[in-house]
Design a protein around this nucleic acid. Structure first.
Length: 571
RNA sequence: CGGGGCGUAGCGCAGCCUGGUAGCGCACAUGCUUUGGGAGCAUGAGGCCGUCGGUUCGAAUCCGACCGCCCCGACCA
């Protein structure tokens, strides 16, 4: 491919809207252009990278027996009504009407379609197990896209679906995906770690997310260096110190003007935050009022809280009016005297004697509150966030918190969808059973961005061989001065094509500085330089982009590299 | 949806406070010179100053509404 013909353009200055290195570099190097918030075009270079990522995923999913297919982007809403998700999912599911006034949706994912296909096609246990997958555009009207390709509204995802006779079969296919994902991310040059994850509102019996540690990541990971423990903070349950035993003292009101935060309260009272109780107020999607109580030195974990109160449609912070209406006072709140509320108390609070809690009166708190003596919990559960340095649940060493980007997930769906659609098979026992499903996603664009995050320097991108849009970037210097340069470059370009490789050939009449700078920005794994100087030194100069290592090789040797080292198949 | 910021040429920005019909750098076109690290000179093209409305003799500039984009938060099967 001649650079003079490539549809692209590099930018010398960083686009103003880009913050993450991957976003900046993909824009500057001409891989991407933005069309709207969270909506991007892939230019030819970007498309090539995405295709190569796709091919790696395809090979590994094929290797575990996946059968590739393709399912539609636009679905009749009836399908989503039948599974119930039409009503459970909020505005991120795009709904519209077709010309016949029929309700339609843009697919966010394809469990419904698979369950429907299973109902049509699978009759007998002999047809299972199996895995189907496809690469398809998804649209999710995210409340806020961000970070270039990290969180977008329209994106291509590989989603595979395993279909099994029973949970044991599901475990096998789940494990297969787990192992396939490890291979995929390794081949893509990503250090992904599998963390235990929340199963969300769809139920299911287990889930892992594959995470790449990155400061711009949206998830918080709980990691242990000494034993390898790793969970999403949403579900991580770590050790908590045993509070010192004390006799329960009688409650006592105390005036605390202006102490509306735990910090202010602890400072005012001259006590550690661990001697206070923090109240957080929420409304569930089905209009229940929830008071969550954790100790002042911890934060409420909303995922755990959602799961505890089974808030299928999530939680939102309660308003001051809603709090008042239940007999409580924001900033001075506690369940003492509360009404019409679901009271959820963290288990550590149950063990922590004589805490300072809100008096539900402006400017007042209560000392020596003990549960359940002073109020009655509806639920006692572990509902706090793990903190940096807390003891690891498996080995006790201090845990670390890191931000992470989810590059893939695997999810044991179970039978929710197949029950909803009546996707049954007739078993060996002569009975009808629901098919057991798993679903497994990998977002292509997000992976491309994460690869750049992991493989770049100040000058630009440095693609791993496995995903580079071209194996090499051929630069000519002084072609006008020395016809041998042009001749050699043309020959090399042709040789590469003959060898079944395509390389990017900078045939532009630009200064050496411009060509080198662009080559380093675009990030092909090898930069090949042909110039009077290199010819005098015996051939072509090879530079490894990632390391800067250089050597000069005769053209025949470069042909050898093209055949063996550069692993790019012809487009 | 709450908070903050920004919309002026392909990209990065100035001009706005104090109204007088738009400017700089890069990129682009043509010519000459230059050619191992973002070249030089000359000439040139490119803008409904996000949109609509208002104030004014006159609006990129002042006022209002709306739209769009970015960041933080909420959200994230």
């Amino acid at each position: 491919m001649r650079l003079s013909e490539l549809f692209f353009s590099t930018l010398r200055d960083d686009p103003g809207e880009a913050e993450m290195p991957s976003h900046r570099l993909l824009l500057r190097a001409g891989y991407l252009r933005q069309l709207g918030s969270g909506i991007y075009s892939l230019l030819p270079l970007g498309k090539r990278v995405s295709d190569r990522v796709e091919q790696v995923v395809r090979e590994e999913i094929n290797a575990i027996g996946g059968q590739e297919m393709e399912m539609p982007v636009v679905h009749p809403a009836e399908v989503w009504k039948e599974s119930g998700r039409y009503f459970k999912i909020g505005p991120e599911l795009v709904r519209f009407k077709d010309r016949g006034e029929r309700d339609m949706v843009l697919a966010m994912t394809h469990e419904e379609v698979v369950a429907l296909l299973l109902r049509d096609i699978v009759q007998s246990y002999r047809q299972l197990p199996m895995i189907v997958y496809h690469f398809q555009t998804k649209f999710r009207d995210e409340p806020r896209s961000r970070g270039g390709l990290i969180r977008v509204r329209e994106f291509v995802m590989k989603d595979s679906y395993s279909c099994d006779l029973d949970d044991a079969g599901l475990d096998v296919n789940y494990k297969k995906h787990y192992v396939a994902y490890e291979k995929i991310f390794k081949r893509l040059g990503l250090d992904a770690i599998a963390v235990g994850a929340d199963v969300g509102i769809m139920g299911g019996t287990g889930a892992h997310e594959f995470m790449v540690v990155n400061d711009f990541g949206e998830d918080t990971l709980v990691l242990c260096d000494s034993c390898g423990y790793a969970d999403n903070q949403q579900i991580a349950i770590v050790g908590k110190p045993e509070p010192a035993a004390e006799d329960a003292l009688p409650m006592e009101d105390v005036e605390t003007p202006g102490a509306t935060t735990i910090d202010a309260l602890a400072t005012f009272m001259g006590i550690p935050k661990s001697k206070t109780a923090k109240a957080a107020f929420f409304m569930t999607g089905d209009d229940r009022f929830v008071v969550a109580i954790v100790r002042g030195d911890y934060d409420v974990n909303e995922t755990k809280l959602v799961n505890t109160v089974k808030a299928r449609r999530g939680l939102r912070p309660a308003t001051v009016e809603e709090i008042k209406a239940r007999g409580m006072e924001a900033g001075y709140g506690s369940p003492i005297g509360a009404r019409d509320s679901v009271v959820v108390v963290d288990e550590l609070v149950m063990r922590s004697p004589n805490l300072v809690a809100g008096a539900n009166r402006l400017g007042w708190h209560v000392k020596n509150v003990n549960v359940p003596r002073d109020y009655t919990p509806d639920h006692v559960a572990e509902i706090t966030n793990a903190r940096e340095g807390d003891p690891c649940p498996t080995c006790g060493a201090p845990i670390k918190l890191r931000q992470g980007i989810e590059v893939g997930n695997i999810f044991k769906l179970g039978t929710d969808f197949t029950n909803a659609f009546g996707s049954m098979y007739l078993g060996e026992d002569g009975e009808r059973h629901p098919i057991v499903m798993g679903s497994y996603g990998i977002g292509l664009g997000r992976n491309v961005a994460c690869i750049v995050e992991a493989h770049h320097d100040e000058k630009g991108i440095a693609w791993p061989d496995e995903v580079a849009p071209f194996a090499a970037h051929l630069v000519t210097i002084g072609a006008a001065r020395d016809p041998k340069v042009l001749e050699t470059a043309e020959r090399l370009h042709r040789l590469a094509a003959d060898a079944g490789r395509d390389i990017l050939y900078d045939d532009r009449d630009e200064s050496p500085g411009v060509k080198f700078t662009d080559a380093e920005l675009l990030g092909m794994p090898w930069i090949l330089t042909v110039s009077p100087r290199s010819l005098a030194a015996g051939g072509i100069e090879l530079t490894r982009r990632a390391t800067g290592e250089r050597s000069t090789q005769p053209i025949e040797a470069v042909e050898g590299y093209l055949r063996s080292v550069f692993p790019i198949p012809i487009a």
